Amino acid sequence: MTNNFISNETPIVGKLSIISIISMKGCEGITAKIDEYLRAFRGYEDTETYVTHVTCPRFGTGEGKCVIDETVRGHDVYIICDVFNYGVTYKMYGVENHMSPDDHYQDLKRVIAAMGGKARRVTVVMPMLYEGRQHRRNGRESLDAALMLQELVHMGVSNIITFDAHDPRISNAIPLAGFDDVQATYQMIKALVRAVPDISLNKKDTIVISPDEGGMSRCMYYSSVLKLDLGMFYKRRDYSVIVNGKNPIEAHEYLGRDVNGKDVIIVDDMISSGESVIDVANNLKKQGAKRIFVFASFGLFCNGLECFDKAAADGIVDKIFTTNLIYRNPDLATREWYCEVDMSKYISLLIDTLNHDETISSLLNPVTKIKNLVSKLENK
Rank of each mutant, 00 (worst) to 15 (best):
residue 234 Y to F: 14
residue 236 R to I: 10
residue 236 R to P: 00
residue 242 I to M: 13
residue 242 I to Y: 01
residue 242 I to K: 13
residue 245 G to S: 08
residue 246 K to A: 15
residue 246 K to R: 11
residue 246 K to S: 12
residue 247 N to W: 07
residue 247 N to S: 14
residue 247 N to G: 00
residue 248 P to C: 11
residue 248 P to F: 00
residue 248 P to T: 07
residue 249 I to P: 01
residue 250 E to L: 15
residue 250 E to Q: 14
residue 251 A to D: 15
residue 251 A to G: 05
residue 252 H to K: 04
residue 252 H to G: 00
residue 253 E to M: 12
residue 253 E to P: 00
residue 254 Y to F: 14
residue 255 L to V: 15
residue 256 G to I: 01
residue 257 R to P: 06
residue 257 R to Y: 00
residue 258 D to Y: 07
residue 258 D to N: 14
residue 258 D to V: 04
residue 259 V to G: 05
residue 260 N to T: 11
residue 260 N to G: 06
residue 260 N to M: 12
residue 260 N to Y: 14
residue 261 G to W: 04
residue 261 G to K: 10
residue 266 I to T: 01
residue 266 I to F: 02
residue 267 V to C: 08
residue 267 V to Y: 07
residue 268 D to P: 05
residue 269 D to C: 11
residue 270 M to A: 10
residue 271 I to H: 01
residue 273 S to Q: 12
residue 274 G to H: 05
residue 275 E to W: 10
residue 276 S to R: 10
residue 276 S to T: 15
residue 276 S to L: 06
residue 277 V to I: 15
residue 277 V to K: 13
residue 278 I to V: 15
residue 278 I to A: 08
residue 278 I to N: 07
residue 279 D to C: 12
residue 279 D to M: 12
residue 279 D to G: 10
residue 280 V to F: 03
residue 281 A to R: 06
residue 282 N to D: 11
residue 282 N to E: 14
residue 282 N to A: 13
residue 285 K to Q: 10
residue 286 K to Y: 01
residue 286 K to H: 08
residue 288 G to P: 06
residue 289 A to H: 03
residue 289 A to N: 04
residue 290 K to N: 15
residue 290 K to L: 11
residue 291 R to Q: 08
residue 292 I to A: 10
residue 292 I to Q: 08
residue 293 F to P: 11
residue 294 V to S: 03
residue 294 V to M: 04
residue 296 A to Q: 04
residue 296 A to S: 13
residue 297 S to T: 15
residue 298 F to Y: 11
residue 298 F to G: 00
residue 298 F to S: 01
residue 299 G to D: 06
residue 300 L to C: 09
residue 301 F to G: 06
residue 302 C to H: 11
residue 302 C to N: 15
residue 305 L to S: 09
residue 307 C to T: 08
residue 307 C to I: 13
residue 311 A to P: 09
residue 311 A to W: 06
residue 312 A to M: 02
residue 312 A to G: 09
residue 312 A to K: 00
residue 315 G to R: 06
residue 316 I to L: 13
residue 316 I to H: 04
residue 316 I to K: 09
residue 316 I to Q: 03
residue 318 D to P: 07
residue 319 K to M: 08
residue 319 K to E: 05
residue 320 I to M: 09
residue 321 F to K: 01
residue 324 N to A: 04
residue 326 I to Y: 00
residue 327 Y to H: 15
residue 327 Y to K: 14
residue 328 R to C: 03
residue 329 N to P: 02
residue 330 P to V: 05
residue 331 D to R: 01
residue 331 D to P: 00
residue 333 A to T: 07
residue 334 T to L: 13
residue 334 T to N: 12
residue 334 T to P: 01
residue 335 R to M: 13
residue 336 E to Y: 04
residue 337 W to P: 01
residue 337 W to T: 05
residue 337 W to Y: 14
residue 339 C to V: 15
residue 339 C to M: 09
residue 339 C to S: 12
residue 341 V to W: 02
residue 342 D to M: 06
residue 343 M to W: 00
residue 345 K to H: 12
residue 346 Y to K: 05
residue 347 I to R: 07
residue 347 I to G: 02
residue 348 S to L: 02
residue 348 S to N: 03
residue 350 L to Q: 06
residue 350 L to F: 12
residue 351 I to P: 02
residue 351 I to T: 09
residue 351 I to G: 06
residue 351 I to E: 03
